[in-house]
């Protein structure tokens, strides 16, 4: 992914995942947890942080081991590394907050098969030294968490009338129930993508207009 001749600066490496290659909005990867856990902002944030931890930890290890792992078995090795980190997170969340653990359910263990993590390990961490790999993974993880939060807060506000558990509206607020149901996840993400597409198209059009006006 970073094949350009000039090495990206650490800052660029970090910002890559947050903005230009945001895993949720630009690459549309790892959709399963995105949809499933974003019924509330708190769940979304917890899932985002757990994924960031696994992503960063596995990127560090994959990057350190990049000289020793034979090419033929690299995917299997990465999966085992990732699965170990997920097991750690799984037990950690169970110890910290049982309510959160039951809310996220099987989706903590399913972090293993989140394509972002394996994708980063293969495309970036296995080809770069530890520091850029960790920075890139951290950025990707935070970008993922931001995406989750964007989805979770919209769904919580519309579907339950709350944000982070605090009631936003009066007692006679009628929540838009379908938004916390499965279809809501598809609709809200579809809506966000639509918004970004529209903004991008609009920006392109404005630039084209300015270009013709100047000459």
């Amino acid at each position: 992914m970073n094949a350009q001749p000039a090495r990206p600066t650490p800052m660029e490496e970090f910002l890559e995942g947050i903005w230009r290659q945001n895993p949720v909005f630009v690459m549309v990867l790892g959709m399963c947890p995105v949809m499933a856990v974003t019924v509330s902002a708190v769940n979304a944030l917890a899932m985002g942080l757990a994924t960031t931890f696994v992503l960063t930890g596995s990127a560090l290890l994959v990057s350190l081991l990049r000289g020793w792992v034979p090419r033929e078995v690299r995917i299997a090795t990465y999966i085992v590394i990732i699965a170990s980190f997920v097991t750690v997170v799984d037990y950690l969340i169970q110890a910290l907050s049982l309510t959160l653990y039951t809310a996220l359910g099987a989706f903590i263990q399913l972090i293993v098969v989140n394509c972002i993590i394996l994708g980063r390990a293969e495309a970036h961490a296995s080809k770069n030294p530890p520091l850029p790999a960790v920075l890139n993974a951290l950025g990707m993880g935070l970008g993922f968490a931001i995406g989750l939060l964007a989805l979770g807060s919209v769904r919580e506000v519309l579907g339950a009338g709350r944000l982070f558990g605090l009631a936003l509206f009066g007692a006679d607020f009628q929540p838009w129930g379908v938004m916390v149901q499965p279809p809501g996840g598809f609709f809200v993400l579809g809506g966000w993508l639509l918004l970004f597409n529209w903004l991008k198209k609009r920006q392109g059009r404005l630039q084209a207009e300015r270009g013709t006006a100047h000459g």
Binding site: V28, V178, Q181, P183, L193, L194, N197
Partner: peptide, 22 residues
Amino acid sequence: PDPVQGTALALILAGLLSLTFM
């Protein structure tokens, strides 16, 4: 419509399908 094409459309479609399955 132009901005809806691609993944956004697929997601909204999936949402409608999911609504039916509810």
